[in-house]
Design a protein around this nucleic acid. Structure first.
Length: 549
RNA sequence: GCGCCCGUAGCUCAGUUGGAUAGAGUAUCAGAUUCCGAAUCUGAGGGUCGCAGGUUCGACUCCUGUCGGGCGCGCCA
């Protein structure tokens, strides 16, 4: 059985059709009123039809309601409110059905098929393999991973991909920096490039190579040596990144190397370029090959092949995006730092010019994060003197808090990450407020020992119980909506409001009551269903649900 | 100068294809444990939704202008 929102949607659609002969699909919406006194659900359909029917909304609503009273039997009441809302209240008996639905679904409760099997390729994190992940990547990683979890749970077919920039100049810099540190290890001189990587982790990798390979690279052929140190550097940096992501509960299905597109004599890139050339999208100027991106909304044309014959960053990345589509993913999502926003127009221009539909690529931009403590920005790690890494952040505040905080605020807003607050293990910290509720649930179920599934839970009639039932039943809708809009913060909001009601219920009603085993059993069903829902919701955020804390 | 993002309670933020009296948390103040974990609960105060116009039955939401903050404007990646 589907949830109430869908049931009401169908019932209203049918009622409008039979009363007015109108297909309301495009204008019909079922909502939850802000004020619960209005009802459990409402629709503004009568107001939306007013213009078309030339009648007062309340007059339009009346026959619809009469029809609904006959067809929608799960309702306890259906009423018209000014200026023309139709408000529904669900009967207690229908509401309590959700308990068995949740108990049967278990870990999969919240799953829905709103994604209809749509194939989506999500590219995110994609930090350069030249150093450790820092807090900006942590925001990107948490958000992207939750988006993937939400979409998977909503029936999308998701591929999680990391694009590795291992072909550009910054990788040469990494190689040169490693060689310099390698020489330094053996007491020899080698210039550390000015734009090179000076961080401690680069030094450490150079030392590892020195220990592993000995002195044999000191007198080696310079270009062979650079190639080796590039490759070693990238591999070892990537291994660290993968390990950090694993610690952060993020896993990728696919690691796509930029160098892949240079393989086979750059076949994929050449194909792309010749496609663009034959479509008349390019021109030569000053010895370089340009893309006429201004024809597709860009503010200036972009260089594809530089005058020295090498390619700009854009070119292999176009091939990368084309290759995603060719692999069978017509829907692409990228998560980039907001400082790359001008690049969004460029990439979309390229895809559009090549003939792909306008909505092929969605780029979600992640605004900057500032780590803040006591109202002041924390720029450097006290221990290392460098930018704070994702690992240091998680060792400090915990993975649960880090992921919760990053995912609870829309990435379109500039974020101050409050280190002090995230570290708190008390009621100031929303993560612990939610996890504590789960521990309380677990503890109650442990204590009660027995629970027996029943066909009906007809004695759950307290205000808080009915509210809980309704919220539990709405969970799959919240998941679907969060997946559709790619906003996991809708789930943190849901969890907070669910947990608030649960804590309140816990304080006002005793669950375990030895004088009334039947009522105890019914309440245990509600508590158990709440626990399952809460754990699944936290799971979508990559946050744990501890049995005790 | 041009482009993108943001501006809602003291602070951090929600606000459901435009809907009902703009909501949470926190902080402040006042209360609640004979009983399932007080890491909890109940209540109070707190607002010109940056500002000014426009669109309509209805605007925090859409449009125009304007102010403030962030970011970007390379044959770097």
């Amino acid at each position: 059985m589907s949830d109430f929102e869908h049931q009401i949607y169908e019932a209203v659609k049918n009622a409008v059709s039979s009363v007015y002969g109108i297909d309301a699909t495009d204008v019909l919406a079922v909502e939850t009123p802000r004020d619960p006194k209005m009802g459990d659900y409402s629709t503004s359909i009568a107001m939306r039809l007013a213009k078309q029917l030339h009648k007062k909304p309340s007059d339009i609503a009346e026959p619809i309601v009469e029809e609904l009273k006959k067809t929608f039997t799960q309702a306890k009441s259906i009423e018209i409110a000014n200026p023309g809302f139709i408000n529904f209240r669900i009967s207690e008996d229908s509401l309590s059905q959700v308990i068995n639905r949740i108990l049967e679904a278990g870990d999969s409760y919240g799953s829905n098929d709103s994604g209809k099997g749509t194939k989506v390729l999500v590219e995110w994190v994609s930090a350069n393999p030249t150093g450790d992940l820092h807090c900006g990547h942590a925001r990107n990683a948490a958000w992207g991973d939750s988006i993937c979890r939400l979409m998977e749970t909503s029936g999308y077919d998701v591929l999680r991909e990391y694009y590795i920039n291992d072909a550009g100049n910054q990788v040469n810099m990494l190689g040169e920096s490693l060689i310099a540190r390698y020489f330094e290890y053996f007491g020899k001189e080698y210039p550390l490039p000015e734009d090179g990587y000076h961080a401690e982790d680069v030094k450490k990798i150079a030392e590892e190579i020195a220990v592993q390979d000995g002195e044999r690279w000191l007198d080696a052929d310079p270009s062979e040596r650079l190639a080796y140190f590039r490759k070693e550097g990238v591999n070892r940096e990537l291994a660290k990144i993968e390990k950090d992501l694993e610690m952060y509960r993020v896993s990728m299905d696919s690691w796509m190397h930029e160098t892949f597109f240079y393989e086979d004599d750059s076949r994929r890139i050449r194909d792309c370029l010749s496609r663009m050339e034959s479509m008349g999208l390019t021109y030569e100027k000053d010895g370089a090959l340009w893309f006429k991106s201004t024809d597709y909304g860009d503010d200036k044309d972009r260089v594809l092949r530089k005058s020295d014959g090498s390619l700009s960053y854009l070119t292999p990345d176009i091939a990368n995006h084309v290759y995603k589509v060719e692999r069978g993913y017509p829907n692409l999502i990228d998560l980039w730092g907001a400082d790359h926003h001008s690049y969004v127009i460029r990439m979309n221009a390229a895809l559009k010019a090549l003939g792909y539909p306008a909505d092929t690529l969605h780029v979600d931009l992640i605004q900057m994060v500032r780590l803040v403590e006591n109202g002041e920005e924390v720029k450097m790690s006290k221990r290392t003197g460098n930018a704070i890494t994702i690992r240091e952040l998680c060792e400090d505040v915990g993975v649960d808090a880090a992921r919760w905080f990053f995912v609870s605020k829309d990435v379109a807003t500039h974020m101050d990450f409050d280190m002090y607050l995230a570290r708190q293990k008390d009621n100031n910290n929303p993560v612990y407020y939610c996890q504590y509720a789960y521990s309380r649930i677990h503890s109650i179920l442990e204590k009660a020992q027995t629970f027996e599934k029943k066909d009906t839970y007809d004695r759950l009639s307290e205000e808080k119980e009915l509210l809980l039932l309704k919220m539990l039943g709405d969970f799959p809708n919240h998941v679907a909506e969060a997946a559709r809009t790619r906003k996991p913060n809708k789930i943190t909001d849901y969890v907070l409001s669910l947990v608030k009601v649960y804590h309140s219920y816990y304080n006002s009603c005793r669950v375990i009551n030895n004088d009334d085993p039947d009522l105890t059993n019914q309440r245990l069903g509600l508590v158990k269903a709440t626990g399952i829902t809460l754990k699944n919701a936290l799971g979508l955020l990559g946050v744990s649900a501890p049995d005790s804390m």
